[in-house]
């Protein structure tokens, strides 16, 4: 147990040192051309196995004084050297550029985009079997692969965080085992990716204070949200609630659509963090996020009071973003 602890401590120590070294070696960049200075190459596990096989063959060849086996060994070694050069060539000269990402929701898979440009004037295929993934990404996301045929392409990377606020997924690992799996060529590049994560929407009853309820002709419409009348479908966009997805159409393979509900415009709503008693702050924020989304969808104007910050009544995409951002950054001094 203690030995394991020591080993783990040692490992984290090494990792920390490595990260510090990496920061110096490959600082944050927006765009990078892979070359000798920023990529690493080392025999893969299979490469080491292959070397071991070569040693075995060498022993057989020497002990039987068999020139053919020795030639096979020398050939395999020479083959490995050629592989070393070819694996490096596969990644060298690739230009990677980060594309700014939009705000997303916590607890959902967030996407980040890289633009990959293959070097010009290369006859041979590049970026074969090249995968991209965040260095610290949870293993649930498969690495994205480059399409070696197209000269310029966007590569989507996935990451996930449960925490709202600014999310920095960290360094991106680009790696390839092409062409024979004997070598791993890789690089850890920090593109400075960051994305603002809104709190995860948590469904809750919409019983908020209705502003100037007497003045609006349908003052209590807001309470009757459950009886929406379905009107139309529109293509699904990132950030829309999963609850409104038209699953039936998804199942039929027609694509992802969001159900739009037509509401008669009700009175403006006042959303307040202090409205939920006995609920932890994070959950309150999530509930508010849900409400913001729902009211926006229903076309009801809403105001938001976070105690430290108050946002006036309004509606529309910009207003929604303003509210959600405020929720995401609640409690953050830099907000």
């Amino acid at each position: 147990m203690t030995a394991k602890k020591i080993v783990n401590k040692f490992k984290t120590l090494i990792n920390q040192r490595f990260d510090r070294w990496l920061i110096k070696r490959i600082p944050v960049v927006e765009s990078i051309t892979l070359n000798r200075g920023n990529s690493f190459i080392f025999p893969s596990r299979f490469g080491l196995m292959f070397l071991a096989t070569c040693v075995i063959l060498f022993l057989i060849g020497t002990n039987y004084q068999n020139n053919l086996i020795l030639f096979l060994v020398y050939f395999l070694l020479s083959f490995m050297i050629t592989c070393l050069l070819l694996s490096y060539q596969n990644l060298s000269g690739l230009v990677l550029m980060a594309i700014n990402s939009e705000d997303q929701f916590a607890n959902e898979s967030c996407t980040f985009t890289l633009r990959l440009t293959l070097p010009k004037n290369t006859k041979s295929n590049r970026a074969q079997q090249t995968s991209f993934a965040f260095k610290q990404a949870s293993s649930t996301f498969p690495a994205s692969n480059a399409q070696p045929s197209s000269e310029q392409q966007n590569i989507t990377l996935f990451a996930k965080s449960a925490k709202r606020g600014w999310f920095k997924p960290g360094r991106v690992t680009v790696q390839s085992y092409y062409p024979f799996g004997l070598f791993r060529v890789w690089s850890h590049i920090d593109f400075g990716f960051s994305s603002l994560l809104y709190p995860t929407p948590v469904e809750n009853a919409l019983n908020n204070v209705v502003l100037s309820g007497e003045e609006t002709d349908a003052g209590n419409q807001a309470a009757k949200v459950g009886f929406d009348t379905f009107s139309t479908l529109k293509p699904f966009q990132q950030g829309e609630s999963l609850k409104s997805i038209a699953w039936k159409q998804v199942a039929q393979g027609k694509g992802t659509f969001t159900k739009l509900f037509e509401e008669e415009r009700g009175g403006d709503v006042f959303l307040s963090l202090s409205a939920f008693n006995g609920v932890p702050t994070e959950e309150r924020l999530s509930m508010l996020a849900y409400q913001v989304l729902t009211y926006e969808q229903q076309g009801i104007s809403y105001a938001l009071d976070l105690g430290t910050r108050v946002i006036d009544v309004g509606s529309g995409a910009e207003h929604q973003q303003l509210c959600l951002r405020a929720l995401a950054l609640y409690g953050d001094e830099h907000a």
Binding site: Y74, F75, F79, I81, Q129, Q147, S149, F180, G181
Partner: peptide, 28 residues
């Protein structure tokens, strides 16, 4: 090659293999 260079078609795989074999010969 068929595993680590799966994106290549058979013709380019063969080309790649012969290229690497020829390249490795002088040193061998």
């Amino acid at each position: 090659l068929s595993i680590h260079g799966a994106a290549l078609n058979t013709k380019s795989q063969l080309k790649m293999l012969s290229k690497i074999l020829v390249l490795s010969l002088p040193l061998a």
